[in-house]
């Protein structure tokens, strides 16, 4: 399957000469449709810069970025808003909803920007919000919503133009663990069911199990990439390096979240194999080093 996002040798420098800072150094990776990639790293590691570059908000100093058919790194500035509007959905740490607009209009306005009439935009926004369980909050102003509800509105806004790629910046930072997990499961469900690629930048260690792949960014470069496997029994994502159990069957290596799943698998492996094929996301062909 063709990757949605291709990042090749991307570097971003700020300043020049003695004051030059290289925020992102020669980064390459791809993200497949339906994949959830989590980018983690310490403060100042270049996560925000990388996210801005991926979102077409900042030009790389070198390298190429392709989102679907669009080569965004060399694209004219005037065309970038169109790419951001149609190909990328943004989910922000602070939700960033428009305070004067209702939930419905916060989502509809983005569809309107893309050219839909007000009634069409509202219809699409209403459907999305209902799907996300916010049908009873359509006319509410953001200030009347809980953190989790605000983030779901933000996700609906990110999805309204049916983008290929969703970029989420610390989507759980302002949420308690329950709502944080709820949002992460929602993002994962969207990625899997709608085959959208999701890239999440976060400090939150608790959400690692939701991602298919964890990329560790430090000093502007990826280090120690942790690829996540899916437990064929329960469907949980499992850190391959830390999986409590693993087994080889029919020439494939399987990872399990717990001994119980491992034992259950060994009783009747065949019954889990079809499911495993469906649940394992397509991983990128090229991995960063």
């Amino acid at each position: 399957m063709e990757p949605i996002l291709v990042v090749e040798s991307v570097t971003r420098r700020f300043g020049s000469g003695a004051t030059e800072v290289v925020a992102v150094k020669d980064i390459s990776f791809t993200v497949a449709p339906g994949e959830v990639a989590l980018i983690m790293g310490p403060s100042g590691s270049g996560k925000t810069t990388l996210l801005s570059i991926l979102g077409g908000l900042l030009k790389p100093s070198a390298g190429h970025i392709q989102i679907g058919p669009d080569e965004v790194s060399s694209m004219d500035e005037r065309r970038l808003p169109e790419v951001r509007l149609r190909r990328i959905g943004f989910v922000f740490q602070d939700f960033n909803l428009l305070s004067a607009l209702s939930c419905l209009d916060n989502v509809a306005i983005v569809a309107q920007l893309a050219g839909l009439s007000l009634s069409q935009a509202r219809q699409r926004a209403r459907q999305l919000l209902q799907q996300l369980g916010l049908g009873h909050r359509l006319s509410f102003l953001p200030e009347k919503l809980s953190g989790g509800e605000k983030q779901r509105v933000a996700i609906a806004r990110a999805l309204v133009n049916q983008p290929d790629l969703i970029l989420a910046d610390e989507p759980t930072a302002n949420l308690d663990s329950h709502h944080g997990h709820e949002i992460m499961r929602l993002l994962r469900r969207i990625a899997k069911e709608e085959k959208r690629s999701v890239i999440i930048v976060s400090h939150d260690q608790r959400i690692k199990d939701i991602a298919d792949r964890v990329l560790w960014l430090e000093d502007g470069q990826f280090k120690n990439i942790v690829e996540m496997a899916v437990d064929p029994v329960c469907g949980m994502s499992v850190d391959r390096g830390r999986a409590p159990a693993r087994t080889e069957y029919d020439g494939h290596l399987f990872y399990f979240c717990a001994r119980g799943c491992h034992d259950e698998f060994l009783v009747a492996p065949e019954q889990f194999l079809t499911r495993q094929v469906q649940m394992t996301p397509s991983l990128p062909s090229s991995a960063p080093t």
């Binding site: 979102g55 908000l57 808003p81 169109e82 790419v83 951001r84 509007l85 149609r86 990328i88 943004f90 922000f92 960033n96 428009l98 305070s99 306005i109 983005v110 920007l113 893309a114 806004r157």
Partner: peptide, 10 residues
């Protein structure tokens, strides 16, 4: 908020 709209693609 205008910045958000601009980021989103306005």
């Amino acid at each position: 908020e205008y910045g958000v709209l601009k980021a989103i693609g306005a």
